[in-house]
Write a protein that binds this DNA or RNA. Structure first.
Length: 684
DNA sequence: GGCATGTGTATTTTT
DNA sequence: TACACATGCC
């Protein structure tokens, strides 16, 4: 496309957003209004007006979104810009910037990054030290501690307030929790380790003071932010800091699609944008190009009942089309059956599987469907949910790499030592003390990896052979300047027998370690490999399988959260039952129920041509919190009354009425008599 | 008595 | 998977 021709593809509002020249800009973009396209065009427009690519900062929600946006902009301008524009998540960009400029804050550039499970493990280590795990009253679990901590940091709210508001059952432990947090923070500094929240905190600190901010601010002429509704207070502070350099801050978002409150995202960022960034221009995109009118009607119906929202009405230029279907199924098995049937029927009609998606609230909601798809040989890729990075053997491998990278990493040592036969938490602690893993202050200390080679007193005899293997493997990785892939290969020699002894499915797990080595072959440095893996973990099973293993056509399975920003011709939303959407974990207060409503809205608005919503009547593993229902579920409360009328309804189990009639004929109305009769029949 | 290991059970969403 | 709890080893 030529420079002028793509401008023609834009509607007036989009064009206004693209051509806006200087100063803050807020684009309120409804679902399917060409937000990604508009943002890509804006990037292209800025480049054509002479902005150099490396002076653009594009903050997106996932690395995937950044890549997508930049490749589109690249095509528009006819040049390769991906490697030069600063693009990625807040966290990934922070990682890069801090390695370049963190020193002025006293941050050594070779820090390692730890993910949320690591954070929880370090909390646990400290919890154990403080003796909080053996008291009468139970103390918050490590995941809860990590969640509290993260909320305090990301929302910028005092601990007592967070406890009172979000974790009231932990409020009595405020003192001890504070103590854990103080030690946790100190410990991270000693180890030269940053958690996710630190990345943002240090970035904010960097741009908060003119003296340290200057080299960062000097880098950028324009900052663009996607999915602004899902940013939190800390991220807004960072933008405010950046705005002291360039006032050209452009953000795009939709408050109706805010689904990350659990990560401390706040709609205040959108609502207060104009006050915070004085003179901001606001552009609204209301023309939907994605969905047919009936799908949009149903989606609008769901969101119209939201308590508070930015006024906006989506219009589509795609009239006609079929009504979305609401399919009541007998149970989950039948739901699977129906999904498969419709998937294949649409494929027969010419919609390939990869233009279709199955969406659900939580990762395990697709468990049964995955089995069924595999049984029927229907290829699929799953986004979100159970992740590669959470598998024990993957964590083991990474812990080994991290020890090599940072010999004072306590969490990794704690994990690695317990791999040895006969070593549990107690012996691991003793060994760590012996190795001097805990670094104190600035005093230079002997390298724990080197000390591992010496004599150790706390090694049980059963652990001796494996310890020798470990010593040899670590030494080999250090001796030659091996690349990260070769190091993983070497570590596999130590790991394979350990995996064999400890886990089932050892063959597949060892293959995963090989997969990890393969992944690492793209990186030149171990440190970069580790940082990239923690900041941008493989989002799907498909990311790892690589092109050769993937069929050319496959259906996408995704949590609704991971489906954000995506669109498919045919969308299947499963488990539309109360307790599923909304999740019964989130029905505590009105605010979280509202977020669940937006979640359903996001799911429905992913569909272009056809939308199916499935509702299983019965759950054998009963949805929690519905004990009174005798295993019968209720339709999601968001699909009530008027909204329901916007769907075409069908009860799938065609035999159900016939069955009931037959039963009635035998046992009379009311089924319990018939069940009793059936049981007696079984008893003989 | 302390510690490692075995068994049963419940489990949101993600950078 | 990871926790709580029970059991059994040194």
């Amino acid at each position: 496309m030529t420079a002028t021709s793509w401008i023609e593809t834009l509607n007036p509002a989009q064009r206004e957003a693209v051509k806006h020249s200087e100063g803050p800009l807020l684009v309120v973009a409804g679902a399917g209004t060409g937000k990604t396209w508009t943002l890509a065009c804006r990037v292209a427009h800025l480049l054509e007006r002479g902005t150099r690519p490396e002076r653009l900062l594009l903050l997106t929600f996932t690395r995937r979104a950044a890549r997508e946006m930049l490749s589109r902009a690249g095509r528009l301008t006819g040049r390769e810009i991906g490697g030069r524009v600063w693009g990625g998540t807040f966290h990934a960009v922070a990682n890069r910037l801090l390695r370049l400029h963190g020193r002025v804050l006293g941050l050594p550039p070779d820090f390692t990054v730890m993910d949320t499970p690591d954070t929880a493990d370090l909390m646990n280590l400290i919890r154990g030290e403080l003796g909080l795990d053996v008291r009468e009253r139970r103390f918050p679990r490590k995941e809860t501690l990590a969640a509290i901590y993260s909320r305090v940091v990301n929302a910028g709210t005092q601990l007592p307030d967070v406890l009172r508001h979000d974790f009231p059952w932990c409020a009595e432990e405020a003192g001890a929790i504070r103590e854990v947090f103080v030690r946790y923070a100190r410990r991270k500094r000693e180890q030269n380790v940053l958690d996710y929240d630190d990345l943002l905190l240090f970035w904010k600190a960097l741009v908060a003071v003119p003296a340290t901010a200057e080299p960062v601010l000097r880098r950028f002429d324009h900052v663009l932010v996607d999915e602004y509704q899902d940013t939190n207070a800390l991220q807004a502070d960072i933008l405010e800091g950046l705005a002291r350099g360039t006032r050209n801050i452009a953000v795009v978002g939709d408050d109706a699609q805010a689904i990350y409150a659990f990560r401390a995202a706040t709609n205040r960022n959108i609502l207060e944008f104009a006050e915070r960034f004085a003179g901001a221009r606001i552009v609204r995109l209301e023309q939907n190009y994605r969905s047919t009118q009936p799908i949009l009607d149903a989606s609008n119906g769901v969101i119209a009942r939201a308590a508070r929202r930015h006024e906006k009405t989506l219009r589509t230029d795609r009239p006609g089309g079929r009504r979305p279907m609401l399919l009541t199924c007998l149970d989950e098995a039948e739901q699977c059956d129906e999904v498969c049937r419709h998937l294949l029927a649409h494929r027969e009609e010419g919609v390939p599987l990869r233009r279709q998606a199955v969406l659900f609230r939580t990762g395990h909601h697709s468990d049964l469907l995955e089995i069924e798809l595999a049984r029927r040989n229907i290829p699929f890729v799953k986004y979100g949910g159970l992740k590669f990075m959470e598998a024990a053997h993957v964590k083991d491998t990474l812990a080994l790499l991290r020890i090599l990278e940072n010999p004072f990493d306590e969490v990794s040592w704690f994990r690695v030592l317990q791999l040895l036969d006969g070593v549990g938490p107690g012996r691991a602690r003793a060994l760590m003390a012996e190795l001097g893993v805990r670094r104190r202050g600035e005093v230079p200390q002997p390298d724990p990896v080197a000390r591992l080679a010496g004599a150790l007193t706390d090694v049980p005899p059963s652990a001796a052979p494996e310890l020798d293997e470990l010593r040899a493997a670590l030494a080999d990785c250090r001796a030659d300047r091996l690349g990260p892939a070769t190091q993983i290969d070497r570590l596999r020699g130590f790991l394979a027998p350990v995996i064999q002894r400890r886990y089932d499915g050892a063959v597949a797990r060892v293959r995963d370690v090989e997969q990890l080595a393969h992944l690492a072959s793209g990186s030149t440095s171990r440190g970069r490999f580790l940082a990239e893996l923690t900041l941008d973990p493989p989002a799907s099973t498909g990311d790892l399988a690589g092109p050769p293993l993937l069929d050319e056509d496959y259906v996408v399975l995704s949590t609704i959260h991971s489906a954000k920003g995506g669109e498919w011709d045919v969308v299947h939303v499963i488990h539309a039952a109360d307790g599923m959407i909304p999740s019964d974990m989130a029905t505590g207060d009105a605010e979280s129920v509202e977020e669940e409503r937006r979640l359903l809205y996001v799911a429905l608005t992913r569909a272009r041509d056809m939308l199916y919503v499935y509702f299983p009547l019965r759950y054998y593993r009963r949805p929690r919190g519905l004990e009174d229902g005798h295993g019968f579920a209720q339709l999601s409360r968001f699909l009530d009354g008027g909204v329901r009328a916007l769907f075409e309804e069908r009860t799938v189990h065609v035999d159900l009425e016939a069955t009931e009639a037959a039963v009635a004929a035998v046992a009379g109305p009311g089924t319990s008599a018939s069940v009793d009769e059936y049981l007696e029949g079984l008893f003989g």
